[in-house]
């Protein structure tokens, strides 16, 4: 998810609040296809393609006009897109959450080292996430498309003067970003439920990840997401216990959980104050 967003954000210099909507669209596509065919793998593929197609359409109709506008317009237009897409999906699918089933191969858990038991499906998600991260890295650094994308990031005019169709290139990048978000949505949809508005909490998290990691840096997004995940978990688990040393247990639990949920935002604020362009951002 973050990988997709950082691609759009960094490469195209566009603030896309509607990214969470692609996440949602992917999950709904997956639920729809899984309902029709019963195959989880087809559903995952469908979520990728469905969200990418939605991405292409939206890029061509709306987003394309926003690259030259200032941030305010981008924020607002994509905020409007959230309203549009969420309500549109609610119109089509209704307000009830849908459910996705995990295939049998991935059901159950497997023992890891040190007798820790971990759900197979979550392991599968982590694996896919790693694959995507490696894939994106290779795409950006090794392929011809990647070279063009990086060139477009540096100097739009120069690359279009060299005969590269820059708007087509941007559409492709946007589609990849949207597709990845859709895939993420489908995978999460199998753990939680598929419903309208599922993308928004994730969206804010993804923004935190990107800002921490530095805008436009895929390495930053990867490290940022680990940092956020670890901080969040530590905050929720350890803070209440730590505070129990100083306070009554009941107070400590509530206090700890409230501070724990704020911790990633505190982390983000701290990092921005010390390094205003993020850990791996360009100055």
């Amino acid at each position: 998810m973050s990988a997709g967003l950082t691609l759009i954000f960094g490469v195209m210099g566009l603030i896309n609040l509607a990214h969470g909507s692609f996440y949602m669209i992917g999950a709904f596509c997956a639920a729809l296809i899984a309902g029709l065919t019963g195959s989880f793998w087809l559903a995952l593929l469908g979520s990728l393609i469905g969200a990418a197609i939605a991405g292409v359409l939206i890029e061509i109709i709306i987003i394309r006009r926003l690259y030259r506008r200032d941030h305010l317009d981008q924020v607002l237009a994509t905020f409007a897109l959230i309203l549009l897409l969420s309500e549109g999906v609610r119109w089509i699918f209704g307000a009830f959450p849908l459910y996705l089933n995990i295939p049998n191969i991935l059901n159950g858990s497997i023992p890891l080292v040190f007798e820790i038991i971990y759900s197979k499906y979550r392991l599968f998600i982590i694996l896919i996430g790693l694959l995507i991260a490696i894939g994106l890295y290779l795409l950006i650094t090794k392929t011809r498309l990647g070279i063009r994308i990086r060139a477009g990031q540096n100097d739009r005019q120069m690359i279009s003067a060299l005969g590269v169709d820059i708007s087509k290139l941007y559409t492709i990048v946007f589609a990849i970003g949207a597709g990845l978000a859709g895939l993420a949505g489908a995978m999460i949809g199998a753990i939680q439920s598929v419903e309208v508005g599922m993308g928004e909490p994730i969206l804010i998290l993804a923004f935190v990840v990107i800002v921490i990691g530095g805008i436009g840096s895929i390495k930053g997004a990867f490290i940022g997401s680990i940092l956020v995940g670890v901080t969040d978990t530590i905050g929720r688990v350890f803070l209440p216990n730590l505070l129990k040393v100083f306070m009554e247990p009941a107070n400590a639990t509530s206090m700890g959980s409230s501070i724990g949920s704020m911790l990633i935002y505190i982390l983000m604020a701290l990092i921005l104050i010390m390094k205003p362009s993020g850990l791996f951002g360009k100055n």
Binding site: L66, F79, I82, L83, S86, E87, G88
Partner: peptide, 17 residues
């Protein structure tokens, strides 16, 4: 309609564009 925010979104996009 329950989905009035859909139209709000549409109006907003048109306005920005």
């Amino acid at each position: 309609t329950e989905n009035w925010q859909f139209w709000l979104g549409l109006i907003l996009i048109l306005e920005i564009l």
